[in-house]
């Protein structure tokens, strides 16, 4: 039996709509471990074992999210978490609209657009994505409170990378 990307997506969708804390499926040549706790590790896995997919339920409604978008054998270049508070299921991820360089502030030396703990409206500008000197502002898209900044300043992000988590009001 061959597992297709669609099958994995279906499993993740199923998991997200369930009440389960963990899902662990193992068949010949394939193993998947899903957990609602981002810090969870697959049973029996060493530091970085076989395919491990962790997902914050509800936080990643898009099938094109980083977890499922990275092909096997490629280091996902996961952006280092700036603050490492456990992501809560009801937080909303703000994702990169395209590849580019992520900037937290309107210009070097100025204060960041937003800080953790700050209240935002859907129209609040929260960061810049730069592509060859062309800057695009990204808005929060939701009213709530900034809970996590997921990317270091001035780092290249890819389409679909999570930039912020916002706890909806």
């Amino acid at each position: 039996m061959t597992i297709k990307p669609q099958d994995i997506e279906a499993l993740i969708a199923l998991f997200e709509t369930s009440e389960w804390d963990e899902l662990h499926l193992k068949i010949p040549d394939f193993e998947i471990f899903l957990s609602s706790d981002p810090l969870a590790r697959a049973p029996g896995s060493a530091a970085a074992a076989a395919p491990v997919v962790t997902t914050a339920p509800g936080a990643a409604p898009s099938a094109a999210g980083p977890a499922s978008a990275v092909p096997p054998g490629v280091s996902p270049a996961a952006p280092p978490a700036v603050s490492s508070v456990a992501v809560q299921p009801h937080w909303i991820a703000v994702k990169a609209p395209n590849l580019g360089t992520f900037y937290r502030a309107p210009k070097p030396g100025s204060p960041a657009f937003v800080e953790v703990g700050q209240a935002v409206t859907p129209e609040t500008e929260i960061c810049l994505i730069e592509v060859m000197k062309l800057f695009t502002t990204v808005k929060a898209g939701v009213a709530g409170m900034v809970r996590q900044v997921c990317v270091e300043d001035a780092v290249m992000v890819e389409f679909g990378d999570t930039l912020f988590y916002i706890e909806p009001a």
């Binding site: 978008a69 092909p71 395209n98 590849l99 592509v131 060859m132 062309l134 890819e158 389409f159 679909g160």
Partner: peptide, 29 residues
Amino acid sequence: GAEMADRVVVLGPAPAAKSYLDCRLVVHA
């Protein structure tokens, strides 16, 4: 292709105008 390359970067969403057809995006990447 994604398996053969040493690294893969996701430029943008599926429509070519927002990924493969964007000069600046490609050169930035």
